[in-house]
Simulated scan of single mutants.
Amino acid sequence: MIEILQWSTLTVCGLVAIARVPSALRGTNRTLFYIFSLMTLAILLSIQAPYVAIDRALGGVNAANLLLRFVIFAAIFFVGIRVTRGFGADSAYRLLTGRIGMAVLGLISLAVLVLFLMMDTAGSSAGLVAVSGQSARNGLLVEYYGAAGRAYPAYVSLVLLPAMVRACRSSFPLLVRAAAFLLALGAIAIGASLLFPALPPALGSVEFVINYTAVLCFVIGLALIWVAKLRAGRSGPRQKTSTAK
């Protein structure tokens, strides 16, 4: 079931990214193309077979996992920029791009890098499962590394959540409100990832479900905003909504 969820999510992200290629080539809203492309790469690096192949090409020291973390950081940052601008959430935009947001991103990125360098990462292993089992020290460092990797996406998601809740209760068109609901659901799912260390090993599959639910909610939510913008454009000039920003 997990593999089906992984490959299905990869397919959805890839198809949406491909659909954005013509617009990106025209220079129209390239941010969405970057988001979908980064999410596609992140999902690819989360799947065992492609992860091992890519990591071995990078030296077989799980550098692909470190790459995955920073790809996720970039994707969620662009999501935050796109959503806060689109919904006019100026305070949330400042929390992401201002001094506080940049400090949070910098400190968490540094923590991820330092923890990775402290581990014995030899031997390609998706999810660092084999790395964690090498020693008690490695196991503890992998836990800290995973927590640091979840911290920035959780920060961005919690910053976005109030704006998404307001959008759901607004007078925006139905498609935009549906998009806001999905984005809010994705934000909640990512926020819930902070609780992963409290889950018993028997519920490890729940982590996959939460993670991929978050990705799908963000991808479909952003795609709905794109569709709403296209529909608004075909309908002629109207009162400016979130899709026009």
Results as ranks from 00 to 15, higher is better:
residue 146 G to A: 11
residue 27 G to N: 09
residue 194 L to E: 04
residue 75 A to Q: 06
residue 222 L to G: 03
residue 12 V to T: 11
residue 98 G to D: 00
residue 59 G to K: 04
residue 66 L to R: 03
residue 199 L to M: 10
residue 73 F to N: 04
residue 72 I to N: 07
residue 34 Y to F: 14
residue 136 A to C: 02
residue 197 P to Y: 02
residue 136 A to W: 08
residue 126 A to K: 00
residue 192 A to T: 09
residue 119 M to D: 00
residue 64 A to Y: 02
residue 69 R to F: 11
residue 30 R to V: 14
residue 198 A to V: 07
residue 66 L to K: 04
residue 98 G to L: 04
residue 179 A to R: 10
residue 169 R to K: 15
residue 113 L to C: 02
residue 233 G to S: 09
residue 159 V to K: 03
residue 14 G to P: 05
residue 72 I to M: 07
residue 62 N to Q: 08
residue 245 K to H: 14
residue 245 K to C: 13
residue 34 Y to R: 08
residue 148 A to M: 09
residue 145 Y to W: 03
residue 183 L to C: 04
residue 100 I to L: 15
residue 166 R to E: 13
residue 177 R to K: 15
residue 81 I to Y: 09
residue 123 G to D: 01
residue 145 Y to P: 03
residue 99 R to V: 15
residue 227 V to N: 06
residue 48 Q to R: 09
residue 223 A to V: 01
residue 228 A to G: 07
residue 77 F to L: 10
residue 218 F to Y: 14
residue 50 P to S: 12
residue 156 V to T: 07
residue 130 A to K: 09
residue 162 P to N: 11
residue 103 A to M: 15
residue 213 T to M: 12
residue 43 I to T: 13
residue 60 G to W: 06
residue 207 E to D: 13
residue 16 V to M: 06
residue 85 R to C: 05
residue 44 L to V: 12
residue 193 S to K: 03
residue 7 W to C: 07
residue 188 I to M: 10
residue 29 N to V: 04
residue 232 A to H: 11
residue 141 L to F: 01
residue 76 I to L: 06
residue 189 A to Q: 04
residue 70 F to L: 14
residue 135 S to D: 02
residue 51 Y to N: 02
residue 197 P to T: 00
residue 27 G to W: 00
residue 144 Y to L: 15
residue 236 G to I: 11
residue 192 A to I: 01
residue 92 A to N: 00
residue 14 G to H: 05
residue 53 A to T: 15
residue 225 I to H: 12
